[in-house]
Design a protein around this nucleic acid. Structure first.
Lengths: 67, 67
DNA sequence: TCATAATGCAAAATATATCTTGCAATTATT
DNA sequence: AATAATTGCAAGATATATTTTGCATTATGA
């Protein structure tokens, strides 16, 4: 369950994992593991990531499931 | 920073905190504290809550900030 | 090729979300 | 008014997100 959306939005803005980590006040490892889908991040961190990437929560973390 | 959106969506569906807690596999206290804005819930819990209330992450946890 | 930046991985430590239990206070129902 | 249901609050225990540090691997650029 990789989160490819974050990675795409990040590289689209020309940011490294470290860059994004600095923007949201987290560590590179945390960003990497979230992108890998190995973490269940906190809401506040999700919000910071979304804002830093000019996206919304739904854009990055919401998956529509048909029915 | 109370989260009134969750509370509104919950009562709108005629659910008690305990009901919602059961639906998402959490405890009543956890739901209560999230509604009070005293917790920073995990993304997975947010997703479960949103689905249980037929809302999206943005509906319940995203606040548009002008500029 | 060489150097450097970016990423992956992993163990131990720390911070904090969540649970458990219990009781008080409030609200709804009869 | 009385009873039950709902919610608030709080301390201690547990689970887990996040940090810290370090090293290996891969990609990038000179």
């Amino acid at each position: 369950m990789e989160n490819i959306k974050i990675k795409l939005a990040r590289v689209e803005k020309g940011l490294s994992q470290q860059d994004l980590a600095d923007l949201v006040g987290a560590t590179r490892q945390t960003i990497g593991l979230i992108e890998k889908g190995k973490y269940n991040p906190s809401l506040n961190l999700c919000i910071k990531i979304a804002k830093s990437l000019d996206r919304t929560l739904n854009d990055l973390f919401w998956y529509e499931n048909k029915k």
